[in-house]
């Protein structure tokens, strides 16, 4: 399981060097599948995940507390032929992403297009700051 927290961002500098010396330029680095990008603004979070070759029937998104869990399976599509090169990876995957705040359960939208999964989330009312009146 992979969880998003601030320390991961700090350790990333190390990864930058490692990747440089190993000539890694692809998104297929040592991260758990699928690689994600998280954007945040006002009261919304957008998660993009790269899931090439996966159809919506083979992917499952769950909200567990304040974690988004993406799981599924990438079915291998080998033909019964003589392969010269086999680089693509297949199998089961599961990844958990910790959200910075709680989100509205009924306003989660997920889209799958061109091998990219997009999840849109909005901040839950009880996660917003609340002004307390003084009598």
């Amino acid at each position: 399981m992979y969880t998003y927290n601030i320390f991961n961002d700090m350790i990333k500098l190390r990864t930058v060097f490692d990747d440089f010396f190993e000539h890694k330029t692809g998104y297929e680095s040592s991260r758990e599948f699928p690689p994600v990008q998280i954007r945040e603004a006002d009261d919304r979070i957008t998660i993009h995940a790269l899931v090439p070759g996966i159809t919506s029937g083979n992917i499952d998104i769950q909200l567990v507390d304040d974690n988004i869990v993406i799981s599924g399976s990438k079915k291998e599509d080998y033909e019964n032929q003589q392969y010269i090169r086999k680089e693509r990876l297949f199998g089961e995957f599961k990844k958990s992403i910790k959200l910075p705040y709680r989100v509205k359960h009924d306003e989660i939208k997920a889209d799958l297009a061109n091998g990219v999964l997009t999840i849109n989330l909005t901040k839950s009312e009880d996660a917003k700051p609340k002004k307390i009146e003084i009598n």
Binding site: G26, P52, G53, Q82, Y83, I84, R88, G115
Partner: peptide
């Protein structure tokens, strides 16, 4: 920086089949 797409290639008597992963394209 360009990503190098992961690729599978197979060969038959008639063709080469090349499959590249390019999400978001």
């Amino acid at each position: 920086v360009f990503h190098i797409p992961l690729t599978d290639i197979y060969e038959t008597a008639d063709i080469y089949s090349v499959k590249l992963e390019m999400p978001g394209i």
